[in-house]
């Protein structure tokens, strides 16, 4: 069989719509599946988990039977954590409510997707870093205040270089876990959108 583009064009244009009628039910059938909608849904789930985590964290001083001083220290750290979380949640909420104008040209629409996703993934990572470091700082204070005798003994046995090296490695591990988690959870969607941006931007 012989084909050419003119034939194909004619047949394409002669090909009418199928019988299926678009009903009002179709306007509310299912969740959207664009990458940004997927990321939004994941962020909503994370938001719920973090609320539960914050509520559970409020009970930690009682669960571990902290001293009065330690409880006060904990509450300061807890308040700082809640403050940062609230700030980032506000940002995520704005991202969640912000919708893309899909009627712009493809490049503009897709670039919007890409930068919104990238910005929010970076926000997500920075919140994770902040919470991890607040947690680490609190743990150090806890050891220093509550377990002072053991802590002093340990510190006396370890060299400064060893301690600095340990801090450095801990930071690296936190960084690697955060980056890997963000990549696993959100990065693959970003990569797919980036591919389309690159295809559009590719100059022949």
């Amino acid at each position: 069989m012989v084909m050419n583009f003119d034939d194909l064009k004619n047949e394409w244009n002669a090909d009418g719509a199928e019988e299926t009628n678009i009903s009002e039910d179709m306007l509310k059938i299912k969740q959207a599946h664009t990458p940004i909608d997927i990321i939004r849904r994941k962020m909503k789930h994370e938001f719920n988990y973090q609320i539960v985590a914050l509520v559970l964290m409020a009970g930690i001083p009682y669960f571990f039977n902290f001293s009065t001083n330690m409880k006060m220290v904990y509450m300061v750290f807890y308040a700082v954590t809640c403050g940062f979380t609230a700030y980032y949640f506000f940002k995520f909420y704005r991202f969640y409510k912000n919708s893309c104008d899909m009627s712009r040209d493809s490049r503009k629409s897709i670039l919007w997707f890409f930068y919104e996703m990238k910005l929010n993934i970076e926000l997500y990572k920075s919140l994770t870093y902040i919470i991890a470091f607040i947690g680490l700082a609190f743990f150090a204070v806890y050891l220093f205040v509550e377990k002072a005798s053991i802590f002093t003994k340990i510190m006396a046995k370890l060299s400064t270089t060893y301690l600095i090296l340990n801090c450095f490695i801990s930071i690296l591990i936190i960084g690697a876990i955060t980056e890997l988690w963000a990549w696993y959870y959100y990065g693959k969607h970003l990569k797919r959108v980036k591919k389309v941006v690159d295809e559009l931007d590719f100059e022949n």
């Binding site: 599946h33 664009t34 990458p35 940004i36 009627s103 712009r104 040209d105 493809s106 389309v196």
Partner: peptide, 16 residues
């Protein structure tokens, strides 16, 4: 014309 854009933009970023 408006439909072309929305339909194509959706397809371009749609993933299963």
């Amino acid at each position: 014309t408006w439909m072309y854009r929305v339909a194509l933009n959706t397809a371009l970023v749609y993933f299963k």
